[in-house]
Design a protein around this nucleic acid. Sequence first.
DNA 1: GTCGACAAGG
DNA 2: CCTTGTCGAC
Lengths: 262, 262
Amino acid sequence: MNFKVASFNINSIRARQEMLANWLTKNKPDVICLQETKVMDKDFPVEYFQEIGYNSLFKGQKSYNGVAILSPHPMTPIAGDLGDVAEPGEARLIAAMVKDIPVVNTYVPQGQAPDSEKFAYKLAWLKALRDYFARNFSPDQPLLWMGDFNVAPEPIDVHDPKRLLGHVGFHPEEHKVLNYVKEWGFQDVFRKHQPEGGHFTFWDYRIRQGLVRNLGWRIDHIWATAPLAEKSTNAWIDIEPRRLAKPSDHTFILAEFALSAN
Amino acid sequence: MNFKVASFNINSIRARQEMLANWLTKNKPDVICLQETKVMDKDFPVEYFQEIGYNSLFKGQKSYNGVAILSPHPMTPIAGDLGDVAEPGEARLIAAMVKDIPVVNTYVPQGQAPDSEKFAYKLAWLKALRDYFARNFSPDQPLLWMGDFNVAPEPIDVHDPKRLLGHVGFHPEEHKVLNYVKEWGFQDVFRKHQPEGGHFTFWDYRIRQGLVRNLGWRIDHIWATAPLAEKSTNAWIDIEPRRLAKPSDHTFILAEFALSAN
DNA sequence: GTCGACAAGG
DNA sequence: CCTTGTCGAC
């Protein structure tokens, strides 16, 4: 079977639930990971997405963060968290079994500024995430890690690597710890299919005409363990939704896998 | 020629400029009076309505009030104000010549509560309005007065006249002063064509299901001096826009006149 | 630029 | 219920 997955930092699911429904109806992914839903669980629009055939799993909080996984297939929640490192109440990680594939969706802390407490927290959070993977999964088994990583891994993943090196999101310390997680056993599925640079998933609202000038960052990712990554057939970014009236500052990243059974 | 006029308390022209453009394109009035535009003059979407063939005259302020007249025809502003009575800076009155007809658009103060200062202000404001008409116009000449009067004139203009008598918007003092203005020389054009009750232009947002239960008020009006009123051919309320996703709490009131020349 | 929270006004 | 301005976050 073909298995189509997507990730999208939606920057408020309530402000953009209609655009998401339109996109799902058109693109029909088997699973989509959402970040920055910015909604408490009691207010998540479950029925709204149920009506278009999507089930929802979500972990939210007031105002900030919030993650969700939507799928037309049955989903089983996967328990587990980052332990002491993560601030309690922060909704940044959710995981589910979908079609026998474990899917982990993260909204990695943004990090504010390299000299800030929040930056240290971001590094510690990513470090703890490797331990989370090691505790709960195996690199020899299929596993999907998707979401807003808030890190552009390589120079070709930002529009001006010289100027931006050392900024939050493209900092050597971030690269070090992201590689530390990667070494546990992940491959960058998008990079496998799109080796050239200039493909971005995020354009800062505050940079005028950032999209048409392509002044973006590739900070949203689809990573997989080797046994799954080798089954990927394609990966791409859909920038059309960024041309809509009230777009998110991020856009959709997608990948497809050719799965054997089921 | 047929002369079609409309009035609408839009409750923010920025929040509803698209719905207004749709309505204008469909209904093609020769003039529309808007209240509660809630936008400063520098931010009024002139070009947006120019693109669909409507010219704009407007008087706005920050956050509150704001009036505008839109027309596909050339418009000449008519100077004049209420003098000392009106609070300076309050954008509640605007007037223009359209096709040789003087059009006065008012957003009468709401009045808050009968025992409040604001209620006394409302009464004084309406009294000063008669003086404004007397100073600037003649009851023997065509004149249109349209807008949100914030008064339901008769028992058939509120859904529960017994209970509501004495409330703001249906208070004997308001009826007295509104009649004082009317006696200068106005006729209620809507009432002429729709003698029966139960036709409303406003439903309080805070009354749940107010529209379907028809718990409304007729507080938006189209009044004219005798020489113009006798040329009116029809008047009606369009409640369709109140069924949209983000409706105003008011809706459109319209009238048509058969004018001799031009 | 755009979001959510909040408080004030209707 | 809905909009506005202000605020903090990203």
